[in-house]
């Protein structure tokens, strides 16, 4: 054999592949998954398992029988979508809700547009929003945390954001609402708040974020600009009237802000390519989230904000082009 191998450049390959990146995301999601299983028990396992299984199965069936292409389940992106979708559902949701969510996430949001890399909207978020609008009762009945309201095991209750919204509508001030429900920031940081499986522990999400940054899977700009915008926006309103507007720390620790900004806003396919674009994207998400929280009819706006900003990504990409290498 000829030992001299002639091949066109590039000669040095990075070991990074879609599969290795997705595996890193799965590892980063593990703390949240473990916390939600520890906290919600078998119901969380059921939701996680059904969501992941249906997502992968659907992607296989669609690529095999509808599109007749080589199947793409080996890149693990369907698994990531499945886990994120499950973390966005209340653990009390029945398995068929996860199945419908998987149909919308994989079938409608991902494969209709041509599969991974061509989808305009984040699949998991699309699935969640579809479910939220379709089954409002199921999607807002949360398996409450242990001792969350009244000291009974696993009471169903609203999320802190929902409780605040309802209390404000009844004319209570924030201090009264906080006293009545025994909210504390330590609870929110660790595990003790009601919400979707992935919302209950801020710390687990932050651990995932640090892992993703350390492995250089994502860059911090989008996440940080979302968090900063939420903090600044709520800070301004909180300083104006602390009895009507929740404070920045409360807004950062409750709801889907952390989960969304770390795992969903940073999705490669549906976020802008440049860092500058990412910052604009993040500011938009933070702003829309807070506008919905303070003035909208839903208590939480993170998923809507991400979807709305997803649709602006082509425009942002157009105006934030990176300079071509080698040109002034």
């Amino acid at each position: 054999m000829n030992k001299l191998l002639v091949s066109p450049s590039p000669h040095i390959h990075s070991k990074t592949s879609t599969r290795s990146l997705m595996l890193d995301v799965v590892i980063a999601l593990l703390p949240s998954v473990i916390v939600s299983i520890l906290f919600y028990g078998w119901s969380a396992v059921t939701i996680l398992a059904s969501s992941v299984i249906f997502c992968v199965l659907l992607e296989y069936l669609i690529t095999r029988y509808l599109l007749r292409r080589p199947n793409t389940i080996g890149d693990w992106s369907a698994v990531v979508t499945g886990i994120i979708l499950a973390l966005n559902l209340p653990s009390t949701a029945p398995w068929w809700v996860a199945m419908i969510g998987a149909v919308v996430a994989i079938g409608v949001a991902k494969m209709t547009f041509g599969g991974l890399g061509q989808n305009v909207f984040n699949p998991a978020i699309t699935g969640r929003v579809f479910l939220l609008i379709s089954f409002p009762a199921i999607m807002t009945t949360w398996g409450g945390a242990k001792g969350f309201i009244g000291g009974v095991d696993a009471v169903s209750g609203a999320t802190p954001l929902g409780i605040v919204k309802e209390g404000l509508a009844q004319g209570m001030t924030l201090d009264q609402i906080f006293d009545l429900n025994n909210f504390s920031y330590a609870q929110m940081l660790f595990v003790n708040i009601g919400g979707s499986a992935g919302e209950i522990s801020a710390l687990a999400v932050i651990a995932g974020f640090i892992y993703l940054l350390a492995r250089k899977v994502i860059r911090p700009y989008i996440t940080l600009s979302v968090l900063l915008t939420v903090a600044v926006f709520s800070g301004i309103f909180w300083l104006i009237d602390p009895s009507q507007y929740t404070d920045p720390l409360f807004n950062l620790l409750t709801g889907g802000v952390l989960l969304g900004s770390v795992f969903m806003a940073t999705d490669y396919v549906t976020s802008p390519m440049s860092d500058k674009g990412g910052i604009i994207f993040g500011i938009g998400i933070g702003l829309i989230t807070m506008l919905i929280r303070y003035f909208g009819s839903y208590p939480e706006g993170m998923s809507f904000a991400i979807l709305i900003m997803n649709s602006t990504v082509p425009l942002i990409n157009k105006f934030c082009k990176q300079k071509k290498f080698g040109r002034a």
């Binding site: 419908i100 409608v108 579809f130 609008i133 379709s134 089954f135 409002p136």
Partner: peptide
């Protein structure tokens, strides 16, 4: 049923 289909987004879908 799946409520979204009675609403506007469901019409488009």
């Amino acid at each position: 049923g799946i409520l979204v289909f009675v609403l506007a987004p469901g019409a488009f879908l």
